[in-house]
């Protein structure tokens, strides 16, 4: 994972609540055995018509959305299945952060492990962001802050360890493996074995 410290981008806005991972990447694209190339199928059924042509009314297909790396979406983004293909598809497409007033647990955990930043804000602020698409925002990972063009600075919640891993580009497996001895000791000391 590459270290990340700031993300600056215009926002692209998806004013839909409860966006589930089946929308982010439909199941028929899960037969892949690698992590790459999923971006072309991101939001496939919302982005493309039956003949494969782009649907003009979908947010990501607007000309202004081109090059945006911050996605603002309605409440409860990423609910549904545990498929890590969802953050893989978003990252492969070029999205680096998702802002919502609630982000589903497994999607959030999967995102952090791949360097996609989940940003949870208050519902009022989310509504403001949803009704002001295309503004420039800056995300400062070290400070856990979202900065808006009008000078507002909003602190968002993030687990300390997850933030550290993002800043250093560390993957968590390394940390677990450092505790190999503790794991062996635990296995030996249990009063019952599975």
């Amino acid at each position: 994972m590459e270290p990340i410290s700031t993300i600056s981008s215009r926002t692209v806005v998806l004013p839909v609540s409860d966006v589930d991972t089946d929308q982010i990447i439909p199941a028929r694209f899960l037969t892949t055995t690698s992590r790459d190339g999923l971006g072309k199928n991101l939001f496939a059924d919302w982005r493309f018509a039956a003949d494969g042509s782009p649907k003009n009314d979908f947010a990501l297909n607007q000309p202004e959305a081109h090059g945006c790396s911050v996605l603002v979406a309605g409440r409860n983004f990423g609910c549904g299945s545990s498929r890590e293909h969802a953050p893989w598809a978003l990252l492969d497409y070029g999205i680096k952060a998702v802002i919502s007033s609630e982000i589903a647990d497994i999607f959030r955990s999967n995102s952090l492990k791949n360097g996609l930043l989940p940003v949870v804000v208050e519902q009022d602020l989310l509504e403001w962001l949803l009704s002001n698409p295309g503004i420039n925002v800056e995300l400062d990972i070290a400070a856990s802050q979202l900065r808006l063009p009008d000078g507002r600075q909003v602190t968002y919640p993030i687990d300390d360890f997850a933030r550290y891993c993002l800043l250093e580009g560390i993957d968590q497996l390394g940390f677990l493996r450092q505790h190999d001895n503790d794991i062996s000791k635990f296995e030996e000391s249990r009063s019952w074995t599975p």
Binding site: E84, I106, N110, D171, Q172, L173, L176, R177, D180, I183
Partner: peptide, 16 residues
């Protein structure tokens, strides 16, 4: 869990 965590469990039998 996601696939990254599947890898964690395979390698260490543990999760963070």
């Amino acid at each position: 869990i996601g696939t990254t965590e599947v890898g964690h469990v395979m390698a260490t039998q543990c999760l963070l």
